[in-house]
């Protein structure tokens, strides 16, 4: 496998992990909305909280994490951009 192919395999792997986490916070949580709401967090019903803040915060953290991981992958295979590449 060439360097490019290996890089793409890892990139794909990261994409799948990222989307799995995204799927959990965007969909799985809300499939069980009515049972989650019996629990509470900071005094809010849990499903309401996830909707108002929880999942949104998770998405922000997820994208920052993704960007850092991807930068590491690019570095590992020597595909980091240099100044003036453009």
């Amino acid at each position: 496998m060439s360097n490019k192919e290996k890089h793409w395999e890892k990139t794909k792997g990261l994409m799948i992990i990222t989307l799995a986490i995204w799927f959990f916070f965007g969909y799985v949580v809300f499939m069980f909305g009515s049972s989650l709401n019996t629990a509470s967090f900071l005094g809010y019903p849990l499903a309401y909280y996830m909707c108002a803040q929880g999942s949104i915060i998770a998405f922000v953290v997820l994208i920052f994490w993704f960007a850092n991981r991807q930068e590491k992958i690019d570095e590992e295979f020597g595909f980091t951009e240099r100044e003036g590449d453009d």
Binding site: L14, M15, T18, W22, S55, I56, F59, I63, F66
Partner: peptide, 11 residues
Amino acid sequence: WTGGYVLVSSL
């Protein structure tokens, strides 16, 4: 309207 950005960044 927030989760869509995960798709934007990764895909």
